[in-house]
């Protein structure tokens, strides 16, 4: 019997929605191990944030509330995550930039085997089997880890956010574990957040993504469409590299992996690395003037047309539809 520990992620003192995907993993994995799960919240204000997580069925919600954890750095967080994690069978976080940064460090500290970015979990003979995308999503591997303690990150788009299940998990304070020499040599300088009224790419149910073909008119064309749909804006690597879109818009193997309900690929030809990041989307719409573009091989609806003409048309049509109710 072994239990699962979820490492929660905070942003401005609040629990990030990413955490709910790791809780879903824990709810699936714990019964396979014949155990339960707990949650660890680390950060300045962790105690208050822990209260947000007491209704999910966790055996305990641990809170390490320490002013020195106000800014996340793996060097300060990993020792405590490992100290709490060492009495568990599996330590998990969602594969956000936080989880991907922290958990391999926790794994090394615990001499645990690690599986990153898992998309599903199953049980076989009392052991967990992790399904992982590899080769830019061109293969899935079924992975087992043979260390007594295992550390994993899970893909937000594949584990639906957990809904509260009622109950009141007890909150238990934990002291910050002494950081190593590494912590003394890392200094937080700044966080430049891109503030946007639009949803985050990872959370959005609709994404409007553009390619290099949009050129300097990337924002001018896509922003009204995204705002009409309440969508997040994404971009191909080529559009980011060319400077038409900021780097954090990038969807793909090297950017964000997304699986919204509706994905618009506008002027995106469909390079392997882009497809790896969005092919889990439920409905894909491709608009491209090249009828041979590979994106049409996986889109549900394809429109061969001049972007500069049809994107404003589409925005107007959707606006009209919305106004008509």
């Amino acid at each position: 019997m072994a239990d699962v520990l979820v490492i929660a992620e905070l942003s401005d003192g609040k629990v990030r929605k990413t955490t709910l995907s790791a809780i879903t993993f824990a709810r699936e994995a714990a019964p396979l191990l014949g155990g339960g799960f707990s949650i660890l919240v680390l950060g300045a204000g962790a105690k208050a944030a822990a209260a947000e997580l007491t209704g999910f069925g966790a055996a305990k919600v641990y809170a390490c509330d320490d002013p020195s954890l106000a800014q996340y750095t793996a060097e300060h967080f990993a020792p405590t995550a490992a100290a709490v994690g060492k009495s568990f069978g599996v330590v998990v976080a969602t594969a956000s930039s936080f989880g991907k940064d922290l958990l391999p460090r926790v794994a090394a500290r615990l001499d645990a085997a690690y599986a990153g970015d898992c998309s599903a979990v199953s049980g076989e003979g009392g052991k967990l089997v992790y399904k992982r995308p590899m080769f830019a999503g061109n293969a899935f591997g079924y992975c087992t880890l043979s260390t007594p303690l295992q550390v994993v990150t899970v893909r937000q788009s594949e584990f639906a956010p957990a809904a509260p299940s009622g109950g009141a998990s007890p909150v238990e304070d934990v002291a910050k574990a002494a950081p190593g020499a590494a912590a003394g040599r890392v200094q937080f300088v700044s966080l430049e957040q891109v503030k946007s009224a639009r949803p985050e790419l990872g959370d959005a149910s609709v994404i409007v993504a553009g390619g290099r073909a949009l050129k300097e008119r990337f924002n001018e064309l896509l922003e009204p469409l995204a705002d009409t749909l309440g969508a997040a804006i994404g971009a191909s690597r080529a559009a980011c590299d060319a400077g038409y879109a900021p780097g954090d818009y990038q969807v793909g193997q090297t950017g964000k992996i997304v699986a919204p309900k509706l994905y618009f690929a506008i002027g995106i030809s469909g390079a392997i690395q882009h497809i790896a990041g969005m092919k889990g989307s439920k409905t894909i719409v491709a608009i491209n003037k090249d009828s041979e573009a590979p994106i049409f091989q996986l889109s549900d609806y394809g429109l061969v047309a001049d972007l500069f003409q049809v994107v404003p048309e589409l925005t107007a049509a959707l606006k009209a539809k919305k106004a008509a109710g």
């Binding site: 085997a113 089997v129 992975c143 609806y301 429109l303």
Partner: peptide, 20 residues
């Protein structure tokens, strides 16, 4: 300590329809 028992290709998406 990380072992792969099996691999599989991703589910193939089928090309949908072209709209006018």
């Amino acid at each position: 300590t990380a072992h792969y028992s099996k691999f599989e290709p991703p589910p193939q998406r089928k090309a949908g329809v072209k709209v006018q």
